[in-house]
């Protein structure tokens, strides 16, 4: 089938302002949007720049706006969006070139929630694993799926308005540790989340949950954290 790809373009070295370029060509219904971008780069304009690696939705490189919604270009097929496709970079992060945005502020927020396992108690006497029941493990399973693609955070109106809001992805990471029965720093993390840049800023717009390519129930996770802050309980 024929596709029309309208792509946001901006190269700070040559362009005074942003613009869109349109490309028409034959594609398959089952092509990934990423395949189309590669095709444009290979045969229309080599300067088109975007990030990609795994090409099957697990590395988080190629989150972008496709027909106005945040998605991974490698996880959306032509048949999912039709032949008229507009592609733009994520909102709320500085555009470096074409579809590449500056991810540093995003990772800086991630680093603020102590995104690492903390347990300074001695190991069990047999020095083997810290025991955890399947139910305890299931408690935080959903939030272990995050691939840090930023689709959620950059779909959030609060994040667009406030640079210092931690954003859903960082909160999801905090959730993954807070409800891990083996971790000992829940209180510290909850405290970080309770500061002004934390969960209170979430107005449950729900955009993040819709944007997540890993189908993490982000709004629900944030709700659980708000509840834990009130009750002081972690179950």
């Amino acid at each position: 089938m024929q596709v029309t790809l309208k792509i946001f373009r901006y190269n700070p070295e040559v362009d005074k302002k942003i613009h869109y370029e349109t490309y028409n060509f034959e594609a398959q219904e089952t092509d990934r949007i990423l395949d189309l971008l590669e095709h444009v780069k290979g045969y229309f304009d080599g300067t088109l720049s975007f990030r990609r690696s795994c090409a099957h939705g697990v590395c988080g490189s190629d989150a972008m706006r496709i027909n106005g919604r945040n998605m991974l270009a490698c996880k959306v097929l032509v048949r999912d969006v039709g032949g008229q496709i507009t592609i733009e970079p994520l909102l709320g992060l500085k555009i470096q070139k074409d579809l590449i945005v500056d991810m540093e502020p995003f990772f800086d927020n991630y680093k603020k929630v102590l995104p690492w396992f903390i347990n300074d108690s001695p190991l069990p006497a047999d020095e083997r694993e810290r025991l955890q029941s399947p139910q305890q493990r299931a408690r935080f399973d959903d939030t272990t799926k995050c691939i840090l693609c930023a689709a959620c955070t950059t779909s959030c109106p609060t994040f667009w308005a406030n640079d210092d809001y931690l954003g859903p992805a960082a909160i999801v990471t905090a959730h993954r540790f807070i409800y891990d029965s083996r971790d000992e720093a829940a209180a510290e993390r909850l405290h970080i989340l309770s500061e002004t840049s934390g969960v209170a800023r979430c107005h449950t717009a729900y955009n993040c949950t819709l944007a997540c390519p890993r189908e993490i129930e982000i709004t629900r996770a944030i709700g659980e954290l708000k509840m834990s802050m009130i009750t002081g309980k972690l179950d």
């Binding site: 396992f117 190991l123 083997r128 025991l131 399947p134 305890q136 493990r137 540790f177």
Partner: peptide, 19 residues
């Protein structure tokens, strides 16, 4: 593998709570 577990890696668990 135990070292990974001690670093917090969330392995799936047996009913006894082991990896």
């Amino acid at each position: 593998v135990l070292e990974l577990e001690h670093m917090g890696l969330p392995f799936d668990r047996t009913p006894e709570g082991r990896i």
